[in-house]
Design a protein around this nucleic acid. Structure first.
Lengths: 160, 160
DNA sequence: CTACGGTAGTTGACACGTCATTCATCACGG
DNA sequence: CCGTGATGAATGACGTGTCAACTACCGTAG
């Protein structure tokens, strides 16, 4: 258990802001994932992988490259690809030139699943997220997210 | 697979805003959970349950009431309480007056774990979230979250 | 060629979440 | 009192995520 030193205590407002932010974004994520699953029978992770592969040249990608692209650990991706392969959404092929490598290849079935899921998924994004916010709020949400991403990336770069 | 009807297609800006928002908030959530686990050996779920119980009268709560309070399905809570009980963080007792009921009771060990985790957890919230944002951004984030929560709650109320 | 550190990927163990099912108990009409 | 439907909670199956270990291969120094 690593130890970290604390600074100033959190104010009530800070704590409340944090709580509503994290709980609501989490609920939004879970709701969207549930919709995707119910509408199209694929998980949020499946969707992420299918989308990335569908945009890759020749609809295939080196496993570690794919992991980087979607920000997953290799192990997580490996487990997920295993499950997706079992369902026929992707298949694995050896990488040319490097016998360690594996490629994930989008199958026709995978393409179909992605295409089938897109419209309901976009609709859910609109209904659950976009429709809720004014244009100003949407811009603010984006600004907050981009700021947070920069902050997290900077911390991660420092920490390693 | 339920069918939903789509409306207007998403613009590039809408899609980008959505993506950075959901991916960043998800990463924030995962990072915070990892910190909590590394710093204090408890998960985000553990923390949520411990916190709620610690604030309850007599540090005990009816299982279904606890589930409502933290917005979890009863099944999820049941599984989680099982794991927490195995580790001695809580124990279960029969509810007085309703023999179907179960109460979750915070153990001394659970109180200790919660107290031990609070300072590093608050510190992580400050470091990963509060420090990243200007006061205006923090207010905007809260406003967005509260708006989204209201929207999600309204949809959920409609849908049932 | 061999040794060796680094890289790519997989695997196993375990915690977590969801869904469907099951079980005991409660409330209430008869 | 009995039957019946609703409620509180637990459970099993399965997909998901993380961590640590492991295998296989690469490149290079000697």
């Amino acid at each position: 258990m690593a130890q970290r030193q604390g600074g100033t205590a959190l104010t009530r407002t800070e704590l409340d802001s944090w709580r509503v932010f994290v709980e609501t974004t989490d609920e939004l994520r879970a709701t969207l994932a549930g919709r995707l699953q119910a509408d199209s029978g694929i998980s949020a992770g499946d969707y992420r992988v299918l989308l990335e592969l569908s945009e890759a040249p020749d609809r295939r990608m080196r496993s570690s490259h794919l992991a980087d692209a979607i920000g997953w650990e290799r192990s997580r991706l490996s487990h997920h690809l295993g499950r997706m392969e079992k369902r026929g959404l992707i298949r694995r092929e050896a990488a040319a030139g490097d016998n360690r490598g594996a490629q994930a290849v989008l199958t026709d079935e995978g393409r179909t699943a992605l295409r089938r899921s897109s419209v309901p998924h976009f609709h859910a994004i609109r209904e659950l997220f976009l429709d809720a916010l004014t244009p100003a709020q949407l811009a603010a949400a984006r600004d907050v997210a981009e700021t947070l991403r920069g902050h997290l990336d900077a911390l991660k770069a420092d920490g390693s």
